[in-house]
């Protein structure tokens, strides 16, 4: 699994396509309403999946651990939403923390971790 992280609009998906040969058809984009679908070559917007998890009373990292064999070969992409000010709403606070924990877990499991900054890749691990 290769893990790509970075701020909003920094070029994470473009990098996944360029670096790992991901095609549009291979991308699953998570959403707050529908969650995630494991097995896709590239899973994009994991932060939307964590928000779905919060809304549905689930723990995103535990869900990932339960589907390990399905994402081992994937490119996973998440926005680093956990760098800003602590949000006022309880759900948003849980979302921020759950995303941070999931990213820390995935970084530990990844073959490569890359942060995108202004479209430029920075290899973290």
């Amino acid at each position: 699994m290769d893990f790509i992280i970075g701020g909003a609009y920094q070029g994470k998906l473009d990098y996944a396509k360029k670096q790992f040969g991901v095609t549009d058809e291979q991308i699953f984009t998570c959403s707050e309403t529908d969650g995630i679908r494991f097995g896709a070559r590239c899973i994009h917007r994991l932060e939307e999946f964590t928000l779905w998890s919060v809304r549905n009373g689930k723990d995103a990292t535990e869900i990932f651990k339960g589907h390990e064999s399905e994402w081992r070969g994937s490119v996973l992409i998440c926005c680093d939403i956990f760098c800003g000010v602590v949000p006022m709403g309880a759900d948003m606070r849980t979302w921020r923390e759950m995303t941070g924990r999931l990213c820390a877990y995935l970084s530990g499991e990844a073959e490569s971790v890359t942060r995108l900054f202004c479209g430029l890749p920075q290899r973290l691990a």
Binding site: G7, Y9, G11, D80, F82, G84, V85
Partner: peptide, 25 residues
């Protein structure tokens, strides 16, 4: 750099962030 926080912005702010990021890139 205004791209790494857990806030759901209104569409104007979101468009502004996207536009600034496109200039940065």
């Amino acid at each position: 750099y205004i791209y790494s926080d857990a806030i759901r912005y209104d569409s104007f702010t979101e468009n502004y962030r996207a536009a600034l990021a496109s200039l940065d890139r």
